[in-house]
């Protein structure tokens, strides 16, 4: 990650490309990001930032339409705020992709049309845990989400890229549901990362208490009879 050196707004193509690359990663897998980058490079690289909305609308199709606003704000923030750390220039990666030198595995997980009981339990547990933390101290709850977003990539051997990105986005905005299908071990890993973050920013006593209260609340929902939350702790 490299700190931006320029002034208040980005006007160099390389810097803009880095801003787009950094902004899109939480929302797409790498193949989709590179496709979108080429789309931007071919059509919008020399345009003014007012064309950003159009670009976003073009790449957000299907389910991704719901994420268009979040993605737009993310990208605008990257283009305007010089304090945001941007990822390295992806141009060489883009060339490699276009030259057929990059191979991507097919996505392992697919989005669920209807959330299964384990996924309902998992979502409620995540939401409940975060709500408990937020009720104590908003600032550190934000830091917890930031920590999880930054570190969830370390579990890439157990989570696939879509899941990692989905968690990053969820941690950033704490809105909606996780829609990919996670197995119990993956759920356990995500919750554990959240617990580690809670220990770091709130201390183990608060982390234990909040997790316990979240579990107690989730145990009361009907889905918990089919999938006990304790299975993923």
């Amino acid at each position: 990650m490299i700190q931006q050196k320029s002034g208040s707004a980005l006007n160099d193509v390389t810097m803009k490309r880095r801003a787009v690359y950094t902004a899109l990663q939480p929302f797409f897998d790498m193949k989709q990001v590179l496709e979108a980058l080429w789309h931007w490079e071919d059509n919008y690289a020399s345009d003014h930032k007012t064309s950003i909305r159009k670009f976003i609308n073009e790449i957000c199709v299907g389910d991704m339409k719901d994420k268009a606003n979040a993605m737009y704000h993310n990208l605008m923030l990257n283009l305007q705020d010089r304090n945001i750390e941007l990822d390295e220039d992806p141009y060489s990666l883009m060339l490699a992709y276009r030259g057929g030198k990059l191979q991507f595995a097919e996505p392992k997980s697919e989005k669920l049309l209807v959330l299964t009981p384990p996924m309902v339990v998992f979502n409620r547990l995540l939401q409940g845990f975060m709500e408990q933390l937020a009720s104590i101290e908003h600032y550190y709850e934000f830091k917890v989400r930031e920590y999880v977003g930054e570190n969830v990539g370390e579990y890439s051997h157990e989570l696939d890229l879509q899941q990692v990105n989905e968690i990053r986005v969820w941690m950033k905005y704490r809105e909606g549901e996780l829609e990919y299908n996670y197995n119990p071990k993956q759920m356990s890993r995500v919750l554990h990362l959240l617990y580690i973050a809670a220990c770091e920013f709130f201390g183990p006593t608060v982390a234990d208490k909040c997790l316990s209260q979240a579990v107690n609340a989730v145990e009361r929902i009907p889905e918990a009879r089919q999938f006990a939350p304790k299975q993923i702790l």
């Binding site: 580690i196 809670a198 220990c199 770091e200 920013f201 709130f202 201390g203 183990p204 006593t205 608060v206 982390a207």
Partner: peptide, 16 residues
């Protein structure tokens, strides 16, 4: 130390 006993930002969390 135990997980969370001392934060990276220098704070200490008591564990009664």
């Amino acid at each position: 130390p135990r997980m969370g006993r001392f934060s990276n930002d220098g704070r200490a969390h008591p564990i009664p």
